[in-house]
Design a protein around this nucleic acid. Sequence first.
DNA 1: ATTATAATTTAGGTAAGCCTAATTTTTATT
DNA 2: AATAAAAATTAGGCTTACCTAAATTATAAT
Lengths: 225, 225
Amino acid sequence: MPQKISENIQDYLKRIYEFTLSGGRASTNQLAQALGISAASVTNMVQKLSKTEPPYLTYEKHQGVKLTPFGEQAALKIIRRHRLIEIYLVEKLGYTWDEVHAEAEILEHAMSPLLEKRIDAALDHPKFDPHGDPIPDINLEIPEIEQTALSSLEIGNKGRVLRVPNEDPQVLRYLGKFGIRPGAHIKLISRTPYDQTMRIKITETGNEAVIGPSLGNKISIAKDS
Amino acid sequence: MPQKISENIQDYLKRIYEFTLSGGRASTNQLAQALGISAASVTNMVQKLSKTEPPYLTYEKHQGVKLTPFGEQAALKIIRRHRLIEIYLVEKLGYTWDEVHAEAEILEHAMSPLLEKRIDAALDHPKFDPHGDPIPDINLEIPEIEQTALSSLEIGNKGRVLRVPNEDPQVLRYLGKFGIRPGAHIKLISRTPYDQTMRIKITETGNEAVIGPSLGNKISIAKDS
DNA sequence: ATTATAATTTAGGTAAGCCTAATTTTTATT
DNA sequence: AATAAAAATTAGGCTTACCTAAATTATAAT
């Protein structure tokens, strides 16, 4: 049963890819929530996706799912398109970084191989999207980057921002206000003992920003040695 | 029953708009062929589209369909997006004019109002697409243009190409080879009595091209006075 | 270890948008 | 005007991707 790859399927694969990035399996509920559909629908679909030839993923009852190499390639194809679109919109059409995710979410499904090639060329084969997420190259390879969570920085130590969470426009506007963006240099001023809220200083702008622990875990940095 | 406007519906409306441009009604069979689906499916869908609130079109059994003003606005919205994309791809991403129609056919459905605005601005509010078709402005208005079919030119007389048929890449490549594009100046050399095949000379390139009668009817020109 | 809770799966059902085959209506031809 | 051909419609079905409710399995808490 050779399946046609619909937009839905691409969304499933993308989400599964994200959820399993650090190993492990993606759960039904996780996916249901991320996709905005019922858990029953997810079970149904992943069962299908595990029975295509070749299968996109491995499914075991109650154990969640994991992409096959085939499924991972398919996911990376979409992710490449998504991130190329994001950086293109910012660089060439004056979008702000909080506007591009939603737009890319739609456009990624309408992007032909030719358009992908042209956009990639117009940007001279960019390596990162506006949020610092790496863009898989034409062979779908992603450079490995040494990175740590902002939360793991020690007081007084410095680092350089590598990536920020990409989906929530509110968060992005907040970060943008202080100049917290990929490439920015920061220093950890303080951390409250009780809830681990951090104060950080951004070198470029001279601003100080308050970052809660969950956000701090989603911002990646390279520590200065 | 307030309907969501799916990609399908947009395609129906676009086709109906095209078929009824010169007045009259679009027939079931015409639409079925253009959309690549069965006549039965068309009947079914146009019946639905005539019963939305407000209705997109008027339907009378065996009499074909015609867009309501509401339906026409919806159609023009898509057509505007389609043509903006076409000219953008040519101007900004190095596409040739025979590549853009198919691409725009997909992208038009994935274009947000913001993207439309940005592309329009990036091109400084273009008035025509690469084939010479007028782009409805932000208020969906189309400038009226005085134009005649190439076929109606008299021997020895001259004209300027305004628009060429836009869908068939083969035809576009053929025309492009001779320099027949919007803006090109041409002169009718001869017309065979039997089948009305024309020889025309293109001023800019000095080329001569042979144009059959059906193609000659689809190329629009402004006659030199 | 039992039991309560949470997660997942199964079963049965719906809406869109397409299909083919059969029927009806219109149009064209003699 | 009758009849043949073409066009359009109706009837009945299919697939996809979703849904809710009920049943099952796994996990966590006593």
